[in-house]
Design a protein around this nucleic acid. Structure first.
Lengths: 210, 210
DNA sequence: GTTTAAATTAAACGTTTGTTTAACTTTGCT
DNA sequence: AGCAAAGTTAAACAAACGTTTAATTTAAAC
């Protein structure tokens, strides 16, 4: 909620990129300071410590994610499948739009020892599940969706697929005949590809008659 | 291909667990030496360096994975969907049976700078794709599978879902009404749940008429 | 039993780590 | 102008890092 100066934002941005690319422990505060073009001491001065810096990044991003969730107002005139499609579109756009942070999340959620950050991650995932579950459940009760579907697993597939696509992009690029796109164009291409795939997947599993 | 002594295997096992739980840079050689109950110098003595130790783990595991792949002989009497189901079963079993290593893979594949390890990972994924693609393609040509399916993305979903399940297990456990299972039983439960989910998903997308 | 190589150890090596200090500069306010 | 707070800096800090050394023990071969 607090506001950050340009210098602080520069540190946060650089730190996010480096943490994503090299991991938290693989990145030194000197690396961050150098790339952000600030004195090393400024990091402790502004954020307290390296750990607190990571925490700040998380609070910053997760607050935005939570706001993003609450904006997903249910439009009751929509068909259940339209709602799901809209949800997928928004998730894909959001997550592929903050790939550095999603990399950090991928890493942090693997840590075995519990930490405030780990708790925040799973709390958010729980909230996102709480967003999708009622849509599915109600459509199931109305006989619109197939009943025998594991919604938790479906959510796991949603997150897992997107998280898997992020590191796979560089590889997929050379094997898709799209080398001539620039970076932004390619990002849009990937977003669309993932989104299309997931929508087909969800439609198939939710409406398929076994 | 080489054989390792008991002591070496103990180091490898401990290192794999710690790298998975805390990350490569988050684990010190002293941590490893202490938990494996060996002198610190033995790690350099046996493996050369900490980096080489990780490389050894990767070569060890990836060799096994490659052997695993080659054992997936195609039984031509099987229906395409049976083949896919068998593939899913084996992937899930394999990957959830070496969760520590899969955690390390999840982490390492995020590293931006290319390394021999990163290359090995994507090479293996390519081989696994090469395993599934012909099955799908041939079934599509025979009119058995739905044509408009992105096989690369389907593979991404397979890996992504499993990789996402691994860190989610501890959370899922408390919210599934299965707290009374012991660790081994719960692992089997998870394997079955993921496997069932993925098989339904693949069947739906491959056989669904849009 | 002697010799040679492998295994094992505690200690030390030089870096790099995250953080703090103390001096200095800038800024904003009266 | 003068003062206090905030911003900024280079230098220093102790701790932890991965690795190596040199000495010692164990094992194997003859």
């Amino acid at each position: 909620m607090e506001e950050y100066s340009e210098k602080q934002l520069s540190i946060l941005k650089v730190a996010e990129r480096l943490f994503a690319d090299q991991g938290f422990h693989g990145t030194s505060v000197r690396d961050i300071a150098q790339e952000a073009d600030v004195n090393i001491a400024m990091i402790s001065y502004y954020f307290g410590s390296k750990d607190k810096l990571l925490e700040t990044i998380f609070k910053y991003r997760l607050e935005a994610s939570r706001k993003f969730i609450n904006e997903l107002v249910e439009n009751d005139s929509m068909e259940p499948l339209e709602k799901i499609n809209s949800l997928i579109d928004r998730f894909v756009n959001k997550m592929l739009g903050e790939q550095y942070f999603q990399c950090i999340m991928s890493r942090e959620q693997l840590n075995s020892q519990q930490s405030p950050i780990r708790d925040l991650i799973w709390q958010l995932k729980g909230e996102m599940l709480g967003l999708m579950r009622p849509i599915v459940t109600r459509a199931q009760e109305a006989g619109i969706f197939y009943k025998d579907v594991d919604v938790e697993m479906l959510m796991t597939t949603l997150f897992g697929t997107i998280h898997q696509v992020i590191p796979a992009q560089h590889i997929l690029r050379s094997s898709s005949g799209v080398e001539d796109l620039n970076d932004d164009e390619y990002r849009e291409f990937v977003k669309n590809r993932v989104s299309t795939h997931l929508k087909k997947l969800f439609k198939a599993i939710l409406k398929h008659e076994f």
